[in-house]
Each structure stands twice: as structure tokens, then as C-alpha cells.
Design a protein around this nucleic acid. Sequence first.
DNA 1: GTTAAGATCTGCT
DNA 2: GCAGATCTTAACG
Length: 197
Amino acid sequence: MLPPLEPSFYEGDTVSVARALLGQLLCRRSDAGLAAGIIVETEAYVSQNDPACHAFRGRTGRNAAMFGPPGRAYIYFIYGNHNCFNVVTAPTGTGEAVLIRALEPAAGVELMQRRRGKKKSLVELANGPGKLCQAMAIDRSLDEHDLRRSPLWLSAGREVAREAVLSSPRIGISRAKEKLLRFYIKDNEYVSRRRPL
DNA sequence: GTTAAGATCTGCT
DNA sequence: GCAGATCTTAACG
């Protein structure tokens, strides 16, 4: 197992962590084998003045993981079909997280293809928050999982130059649409939307 | 107890 | 480009 990122990586301010997560490697071990992907797109959800954040109205059953220690998973089920994977950030009790929106497949491509079903191109395997959870077999059973440990962990990937990181409004939300809290790697093929909204 | 909205994806036009 | 699928959660009465 590649060495995991340390807890200190996650405890800083959430926007910085959202940027720093670009280029890191998300790894998933299962009976079927290992799958991994480079993170190429993220979104920050913060506690102050952000009505799009699940923690905006305080702690609930669903969002409890967001208030837990940084470096854990926050996973929720949405639209009756899809899971979304977040990394909890900021000190315990703050209620912030980073949504992982897209991966560039790096290992276990066949496994990811099998989980996604049909014939999907390499680009279509994990270029969206629901798609990447399906490709990596991530569901609510991994909510609050410690991301230093198998079967789901993060480790150091490739360097991403600061000028290669672009920002935009977050996708699919109805409130706080103006905030530029989505971050992605410029010109990367695996980002979920190549064209602006 | 009921209801409406939701950090989405797919397939069809 | 658009609608339909599908179901959990939280807010409200």
C-alpha cells in the first residue's frame, strides 16, 4: 500500500485543501482488486456563509461525518441513484468538506469498467461525482472511514502547478451559485464538464 | 405522517 | 438539449 497522506494535510482551510487535493491519488482495495485514480476536479463546501453546504443548518444524521475529524470520508446518497464522495476538512466540529468530482483512472481500469457497466470510454469511467463512486465501489458503508487506511485511502500523486489550477462556480447547486469554489486541472480530459455552464 | 428538493446520470430527440 | 428515473433526508404540520 502506498503511504497515505497525513491528517495534517486535511486540517487546514478547506479551499486550500480543495486545491491541494488535485493531483493526489485515490486508492480503493476490494476483493476484486485494486483501483486508483488521480483527482482532477474538486469542490469546497465551507461552514461560513455557504447555504449550499450540507452542514449549513447544523449537524444532522446525514452530515455527521462533516463535523468529525479531518481526513475521513463523508459519503451521501443523492437523487435516488448516486453516491457522492467527500473528504472531511478543517478541525473537528467545523463542518466542512471537499467533494471529489472527477478522477483520471490510474490503476485497475478493467475493474472500473466492469463496475460502470456497458461500454464506457476511459474518459467516462469517473468524470463525475456519481460515476467515480460507482467506478470505485464507494457507498455509504464507507461514510466516516479513515482515509489513511485500506480499503479506501489517499496518497501522494503528481505535482500540479499552481497556474494549472482553474476555478469556477460549483455545479448542480441552487444556492450560493456565484462562489468560485470548484477547482480543476486545466486542459485535463477527465474533468466532468469541458465546457462552461 | 407527509412532502419536496436534491453537490446526478443516462438515453433519447 | 431535455426529461425521466429513483429514493433518502430533513423540514414542516
